[in-house]
Simulated scan of single mutants.
Amino acid sequence: MSTNGPVLVLVGPPGSGKSTIGKMAAERLGVGFRDFDDDMTAEHGKEAGELVVDFGRERFQELEYELLVRVLPKHDGVLALGGGTPTAPGVPELLNPYHVVFLDVDLEHLLKREGLVALHPWLLPNPRAHLRQMLTDRRPIYTEVADAIVPTNGRAPEDILEDVLAAMPVR
């Protein structure tokens, strides 16, 4: 594990709890929390979904990679990546030195997450089909980059947090 950079990186689909668990983990560990989607918005002045529409998926992923190269060595707390960030070319290699936890959630539990579709309008008109395909496409990548997988289906955030912290290497 790297000594410079995040003590914990969380990956998973939108709605898996990366921000919620990330903030809780940062508080428990006494470190800062950073949401990479917020970094992308601050850097480019638009939400990730708008950037994908403006630039296209390929250019958006290049922008994610370029920003992540700068963010990783500077942030020594907990980092929650965007749902698609680990799928960008080169990102899995960037994550190698860091402790990565995949917050795993199934389709039925994602569909129950309040506000998910409103936050991610690209899921329309058929959220179930879009989410199913996204999970199918991304799960192997999340699994590949992760040092640990923590299931979140139907679990309380406090219980998920305990599993995330238990999966961390001793510091």
Results as ranks from 00 to 15, higher is better:
1 M>W: 04
4 N>A: 12
6 P>C: 01
6 P>T: 09
7 V>F: 09
12 G>I: 04
13 P>C: 11
13 P>T: 12
16 S>G: 04
17 G>M: 06
17 G>Y: 05
19 S>R: 11
20 T>W: 07
21 I>E: 00
28 R>S: 07
29 L>Q: 00
31 V>Q: 07
40 M>K: 00
44 H>Y: 15
48 A>Q: 01
49 G>P: 08
49 G>R: 01
50 E>W: 03
51 L>Q: 10
51 L>W: 06
52 V>Q: 03
52 V>H: 02
53 V>C: 08
55 F>L: 15
59 R>F: 14
59 R>K: 15
60 F>D: 04
60 F>Q: 06
61 Q>A: 08
62 E>D: 15
63 L>H: 08
66 E>K: 09
66 E>H: 06
71 V>E: 03
76 D>R: 06
79 L>S: 00
81 L>S: 03
88 A>K: 03
88 A>N: 04
90 G>V: 05
91 V>D: 00
92 P>Q: 02
95 L>A: 04
96 N>K: 15
99 H>I: 04
100 V>G: 05
102 F>P: 01
103 L>C: 04
105 V>L: 12
105 V>A: 10
106 D>F: 07
106 D>Q: 13
108 E>I: 09
109 H>D: 14
111 L>P: 02
111 L>W: 13
112 K>Q: 10
112 K>Y: 03
113 R>C: 03
114 E>I: 11
114 E>L: 11
118 A>S: 12
120 H>V: 11
122 W>Y: 15
125 P>T: 09
128 R>E: 15
133 Q>G: 06
133 Q>T: 13
137 D>M: 03
138 R>I: 08
142 Y>E: 00
146 A>T: 02
147 D>H: 12
150 V>T: 00
150 V>L: 05
152 T>N: 02
152 T>D: 03
154 G>W: 09
154 G>C: 04
156 A>H: 11
159 D>K: 11
160 I>P: 00
161 L>S: 07
161 L>D: 01
163 D>N: 09
163 D>A: 04
165 L>Y: 05
165 L>P: 00
166 A>Q: 09
168 M>W: 01
168 M>L: 14
168 M>R: 07
171 R>N: 14
